[in-house]
Design a protein around this nucleic acid. Structure first.
Lengths: 214, 214
DNA sequence: GATAAATTCAAACGATCGTTTGAATTTTGT
DNA sequence: ACAAAATTCAAACGATCGTTTGAATTTATC
């Protein structure tokens, strides 16, 4: 499915409003007004409000098919370098599409989900964890990563930390006295801090040197 | 403010439905029906739907004033033992009140928040991070924790991991082939896995032995 | 430039929303 | 037992919801 500029305009406004106020908390009249189109255009183009959010997911999911898939076959990078690239890629993706990932997290929190959206999220999570699995196994085969790593919990920590950091960034700003910092500068600062934090966290957990089993 | 059993019944039903479908996605008629009371009782008891969720927050926040505050002054525990107790306490609190923390996370994700609720969340986060701060500083004073720990990001990893693990527990079940496991058994399993995972993560990051600065 | 197709719009649809009403009923205090 | 207060209820309130209508207008096709 391809969208014309007007449809994309509606999708982008909807994305911002859904992230700010939730799906149920956003009316189609809100969206129409901010996107500067007539209310009926949403039904006309997408069929319904429900189909609109499905279109949003299809729109954002297909564009994000990461270039990371080729990472595993790259022989010039060490397993640790690959893990670090994966971490930076997750941070960049989540921080670069904060509204969309906000909506995705909201949908994950809902127990009665739209089925189309559920499948998109499930597919994405599957691909993410399989990629991570392969990177870890490669490191183990090379003898630099320890055995017995809980893959799904490492992935949970990676995505959980980044998602939560984004959700509580105002609080982070307050706590670290960064309120005078410009918004763009702050985003870069947060990215760098997250990157360093997560890389350090993963390094000490994933390498088999000095790891204590309990 | 004290609530009678009928009010508590309404609050508990509202908590469950808000967690399932979001605040805006839940109607007062939904709540009234499931709580087996007349619709007007919600306005009668709480004033409005908005005041109801505020009552929910006040209800859950005041009951959770953790006994952790005395942890710092306990001399019989090592800094690492205290950190581990903190981790288990966070896991227990979040997993023991999944619906409420689901709602709290949803509110955190909203940019136009209810002011009363914002203050509750802000106050809670402040207390959490101050407690953690004190525990870390004690460990540093004792020479067993390294310097330069990013407190707010460690806290973000702790809460982010647990929150995200709870949000994606169905996925976790699927990935780890635990779908035949009973619900209660699974909750215990997840708790234990999270506990071990986070303790191991924190131990290797917080102790100054073997830590590599980059 | 005529015809068809796609788009835009104000207006209205029925449904559902949160809240209020006022009478009926139950509980409480004396 | 009686009056006062608190509770319960069906019904209705106006507002807003998502969606549709049908005519008007623009754009595309030949």
């Amino acid at each position: 499915m391809e969208y014309n500029s007007k449809q994309i305009q509606i999708i982008e406004v909807a994305e911002r409003l859904f992230a700010q106020k939730g799906f149920a908390g956003t009316s189609v009249r809100d969206i129409a007004q901010e996107a500067d189109v007539n209310v009926s255009m949403i039904s006309y183009y997408f069929g319904s409000k429900e189909k609109l959010i499905e279109a949003l997911f299809q729109f954002r999911m297909t564009e994000s098919r990461s270039r990371l898939e080729t990472l595993v076959t790259n022989d010039e990078l060490s397993p640790m370098q690959k893990i670090n690239m994966l971490i930076d890629n997750v941070i960049d993706r989540l921080m670069g599409n904060q509204s969309f990932h906000n909506i995705m997290l909201r949908e994950t929190l809902s127990s009665d989900r739209n089925e189309t959206i559920s499948k998109h999220i499930m597919g994405l999570k599957m691909r993410n964890i399989e990629l991570m699995q392969r990177l870890i196994q490669e490191g183990q085969a090379a003898g630099v990563f320890r055995e017995g790593i809980d893959m799904s919990l490492m992935s949970t920590t990676l995505y959980g930390t980044v998602n939560y950091a984004i959700a509580t960034q105002d609080f982070y700003k307050k706590i670290n006295n960064l309120e005078s910092m410009g918004e763009e500068e702050f985003q870069i600062h947060l990215k760098r801090s997250l990157s360093q934090h997560l890389k350090s966290l993963f390094k000490s957990t994933v390498t088999n040197e000095h790891h204590i089993q309990n």
